[in-house]
């Protein structure tokens, strides 16, 4: 860890004024401090934002609104979230550990960096950490890496669970900088790595996520998050699925489907959603609708199993919903 300047403003404008350049915002610190110790991130200034008035959970006619500094545990345990959006509560409870969830903020969770081991080791080439240096994962150990949305420069998976649930539900994020606030679809907020894997999202330098909003969706009560991993807790997904089904009279009226652990960004599957609509819920429909879910997948040396796993995870998640 290197020396850095520390400020902790009380107001949003104060935080935005202190930001920019080589500054980093610090909320729960569960990613940033790790990466600073490893010298993967080397901000010259760290702006503590925990005093900002950006916490709270509100449900209104438009949907669910979550302040960006609300802790993961507070959202996971919120009765209305658990009742109206089980997929969100489940995705949070299957993330990290209780201790980490008590610290980590919702906004920070959406921005958490990949767990790619080569990204986290400054002795290794990594186009995400050090653009132009190359990618060690392609020829390295890449069992946990992505098969969807990859490029020759980066196959690192996006590590967040709740982002998968939020993308499935069509969530938006409010972004604020000195010039004002804008609202962006979370799905388009994330950027595919392409030739610029160091640019992970639409945030401008010094811009802050202030709020996450999920549209009202009464049938999201019939939703679930399934996470498949190498141990039953405190581990990232090999594959995960966020699913919601609106079923009326043995017919699927609408569906929301996204997957995690297999792609460089939270990966919504509109083709699967379309293939589910109008059909009766059940194994035949689910297998048929997910048949092409991994279309375009590009496996590396050790992660080809994620292609069948992705589909199996989707089928199992859909089977767990109310028919």
């Amino acid at each position: 860890m290197r020396g850095f300047e520390w400020t902790e403003p009380d107001t949003i404008t104060g935080a935005l004024d202190a930001a920019g350049g080589q500054a980093a915002f610090l909320a729960g610190g569960t990613t940033l401090i790790d990466l600073m110790k490893l010298q993967v991130m080397r901000p010259s200034r760290v702006v503590g934002i925990n005093r900002l008035p950006l916490t709270g959970i509100r449900v209104d006619a438009k949907g669910l609104h979550i302040g960006a500094l609300t802790r993961m545990s507070d959202v996971a345990e919120h009765p209305e979230v658990a009742h109206a959006y089980p997929v969100i509560a489940q995705a949070l409870l299957l993330s990290a550990s209780q201790q980490l969830r008590n610290m980590a903020s919702m906004g920070g969770n959406l921005l958490q960096r990949t767990r790619c081991t080569y990204f986290r080791d400054i002795a290794e080439p990594c186009d995400k950490r050090d653009p132009g240096s190359g990618c060690a994962a392609v020829g390295g150990f890449n069992r946990a890496h992505a098969v969807l949305g990859t490029s020759p420069h980066c196959s690192a998976t996006h590590a967040s669970d709740v982002a998968v649930a939020l993308v499935a539900l069509g969530a938006t994020v409010d972004l604020r900088d000195a010039s004002g606030t804008r609202t962006v679809d979370l799905d388009s907020f994330y950027r595919l790595p392409g030739g610029t894997p160091h640019i992970e999202n639409a945030l401008r330098p010094g811009e802050l996520i202030t709020r996450i909003s999920v549209p009202r969706l009464p049938w999201a009560r019939n939703s679930a998050y399934l996470k498949i991993r190498d141990r039953q807790s405190y581990e990232f997904a090999l594959a995960s699925a966020a699913v919601a089904l609106q079923v009326r009279g043995r017919r699927i009226e609408d569906a929301r489907v996204a997957v995690g652990g297999v792609a460089t960004v939270p990966w919504r599957l509109p083709g699967v959603e379309a293939a589910l609509r109008g059909r009766p819920p059940g194994l035949r429909t689910f297998e048929h609708a997910t048949a092409d879910a991994a279309d375009g997948a590009r496996p590396l040396t050790h992660n080809a199993f994620k292609i069948p796993l992705l589909r199996r995870t989707l089928v199992r998640a859909l089977m767990s919903l109310e028919p």
């Binding site: 081991t117 080569y118 150990f141 069992r143 039953q232």
Partner: peptide, 23 residues
């Protein structure tokens, strides 16, 4: 896990998996 270059890629308790209580 050692990769082809001999790099020990899971040299921490996040990546070197030992069971948790749930297992």
């Amino acid at each position: 896990h050692l990769d082809a270059s001999g790099h020990l890629v899971n040299a921490d308790l996040a990546n070197y998996l030992i069971p948790v209580n749930a297992d």
